[in-house]
Simulated assay, not measured.
Amino acid sequence: MIRGAYLETTVDDLKLGAKKPAMPYSDVRLLNVLSHTLWFLPNVASCFAMKNLLDQKQNKFYHDYIINVCAGNKAGMGVDALNKVLDSMDDPLKSKTIILSCGKLTTGVTVKPWTGIFMLRNLSSPETYFQAAFRVQSPWVIDTDDGHKEIMKRECYVFDFALDRALKQIADYSCQLNVTESNPEKKVQEFINFLPVLAYDGSTMQQISAEDVLDTAISGTSATLLARRWESALLVNVDNDTLSRLMANKEAMDALMKIEGFRNLNTDIQTIINKSDAVKKAKKRNRE
């Protein structure tokens, strides 16, 4: 799923075409940015299990990354844990790392090359959630050979595959920041101005508003996201048999012919059906 190569969604991805969502380790726009990431997991056992999974021979893509388990007693405490992570990066402009943690290095530390964090656990505390998320916001600037400074990190990302959980954390956290403002929608809007939220609802990816954040946090979805699903290409599943039955139904055709877009397509649909039938007949004759 993280690489956008989940077999069960292959057909859906083909239907979406150019609207296919940008997955972290498949879309080139993200792949070039996410050289160093932090994966926030539930416990020590899950960190080692994830490392074992990424190290399996079929997961060749991740073999280019140094997988560092920053969990348990062997990872060290405080500065020791941080130094091990920095040492594993060596030259961060040339290396690629994935840090697996269940709590270490998620508060009070700065690892400049981190550009993304994956929230792979349930957190009830918004403070813990955003303390970890803000680890990837640390500026990363280097000195060039000619004495100038070059900004290496212009963007960073928080990935959460549980939309309801993420938006509830945003709603709770942003409403705690400004105690003088009584309107929760304004509080959320001010927060997401600095932390834009892109939501993928199974059909499209779009930036969502403060109203959507609050609606989803309360009810599990929003009117906007729900309406978008009705426009999704995933709902369209039309084959030649369906088209033939549709064109044979006078009432349905009368209703559809009132739509200008369908009137323009009507001739093309008949042509497609005829050509498809001709191809099937030709194949059948060849087999005989």
Rank of each mutant, 00 (worst) to 15 (best):
86 L>S: 07
83 N>C: 11
97 T>M: 07
109 V>F: 00
66 I>N: 05
92 P>Q: 13
131 Q>D: 01
43 N>I: 07
76 G>W: 02
112 K>N: 14
161 F>S: 11
54 L>G: 00
68 N>G: 08
44 V>Q: 10
112 K>G: 02
55 D>C: 02
95 S>R: 06
110 T>M: 01
157 Y>D: 00
137 Q>D: 10
109 V>E: 02
161 F>Y: 15
110 T>K: 06
72 G>K: 15
160 D>P: 01
92 P>W: 11
125 S>L: 06
158 V>L: 08
160 D>F: 07
142 I>G: 12
98 I>D: 03
74 K>R: 15
38 L>S: 02
87 D>P: 04
37 T>V: 15
89 M>V: 08
58 Q>N: 09
36 H>R: 04
103 G>C: 06
119 M>Q: 14
63 H>T: 11
120 L>N: 15
95 S>V: 11
108 G>R: 05
142 I>A: 13
138 S>L: 00
150 E>P: 08
145 D>E: 14
103 G>F: 09
44 V>Y: 06
87 D>G: 03
105 L>K: 03
142 I>C: 13
147 G>K: 08
116 G>L: 07
152 M>W: 02
151 I>G: 03
162 A>S: 10
36 H>T: 12
124 S>N: 08
38 L>Q: 03
158 V>T: 08
108 G>I: 12
39 W>V: 15
103 G>P: 05
88 S>T: 05
65 Y>P: 05
78 G>T: 12
60 K>D: 15
117 I>F: 04
126 P>K: 13
112 K>Q: 14
123 L>K: 09
101 S>K: 11
82 L>V: 14
106 T>S: 01
116 G>Q: 06
118 F>L: 03
40 F>I: 13
67 I>T: 11
137 Q>K: 12
40 F>M: 13
61 F>R: 05
84 K>S: 00
70 C>V: 14
52 N>R: 15
115 T>R: 03
119 M>D: 12
53 L>S: 07
136 V>E: 04
